[in-house]
């Protein structure tokens, strides 16, 4: 544990303006969905807080009728996850769809015996991605991602799995801020209160896997990422150097997840190097 002189993340983020964040994100979701010529958005709803927040924002931005929530349980998923996801669908009155991914996942896993739980978890995340993008085409609905800033920075996500989306509305909000936004939006309390989990295997816990609580992570991240505090000053500020080092290693070792694939520079004008146009080109 770090020294008691550091305020908990909930206090460090106490000035976070959830109503304004919500307003800005509603504007952004509406803008991005309509810019590409869609009316609807599609969200993979896990029963956790991140996807619930994105569903609430999308329902405000586009209306409940234009918000599709897809539940994609695997046979080992906690029943409580589906119940919580159903509560979100019911509260918002959005369109809900349940697709059991067990047959798809198992069909692959049978061809590859001895797959450990990390690999199996990644397969599940990528099957969910496949389902979401297919449903996106079926419903003409833009896939909204549910990654938050904490996960993105420490690379706690499956590349081309849950990290895949067209727009990631809460990608610049730390977990602590997502919690604050969830309260503001009225996300059901059963979702607010449960411990965060990717629910890829029984008893999985984000914080146990990461080795730090979100509270600890967010306090460190906001210092080194947002405030650009030099690492050697972190211990003066009361942070445990080994924890800071651990977080920095997570950030560095997962940078590849936050970037496009490397393309060798051969020609005079190359994708990813000097062919520079925004995604919103012409929109």
């Amino acid at each position: 544990m770090s020294s008691p002189s550091i305020e908990p993340a909930s206090a460090a983020f106490s000035g976070f303006n959830a109503p304004l964040a919500s307003r800005a994100l509603v504007v952004l979701i509406h803008d991005e969905v309509t810019k590409v010529g869609f009316q609807r958005a599609l969200i993979g709803l896990s029963g956790g807080i991140d996807s619930a927040v994105v569903a609430f924002l999308a329902a405000q931005a586009l209306g409940p009728r234009n918000t599709f929530c897809v539940m994609m349980p695997y046979r080992t998923s906690t029943p409580a996850s589906v119940r919580d996801a159903e509560a979100v669908i019911q509260t918002l009155g959005v369109e809900g769809l349940k697709i059991d991914i067990s047959p798809m996942v198992d069909a692959y896993l049978e061809t590859s015996p001895g797959t450990d739980r990390i690999r199996s978890g990644n397969v599940m995340a990528r099957v969910r991605m496949m389902v979401l993008f297919d449903q996106s085409a079926a419903h003409q609905a833009l896939v909204l991602g549910t990654s938050n800033k904490t996960e993105l920075l420490v690379g706690y996500g499956t590349l081309f799995g849950d990290m895949a989306s067209a727009v990631a509305p809460i990608g610049d909000l730390y977990k602590t801020e997502v919690r604050s936004l969830a309260k503001h939006l009225g996300v059901p309390s059963s979702i607010l209160e449960k411990p965060p989990t990717a629910d890829l295997w029984e008893g999985q816990s984000d914080e146990a896997e990461l080795g730090l609580t979100y509270d600890e992570l967010d306090r460190i991240l906001v210092e080194v990422v947002d405030k650009r505090i030099p690492l050697d000053e972190m211990s003066e500020r009361g942070f445990d150097p080994s924890q800071v080092e651990r977080v920095m290693n997570m950030i560095r070792s997962t940078q590849f997840k936050r970037r496009s694939p490397i393309i060798p520079k051969i020609s005079t004008r190359s994708v990813n190097h000097d062919f520079l146009y925004k995604r919103d080109w012409g929109k």
Binding site: F13, G15, F16, N17, L20, A21, A24
Partner: peptide
Amino acid sequence: PGRGLRREEKF
């Protein structure tokens, strides 16, 4: 661009 949401009533 609007940015910065901490301890603020607006950006």
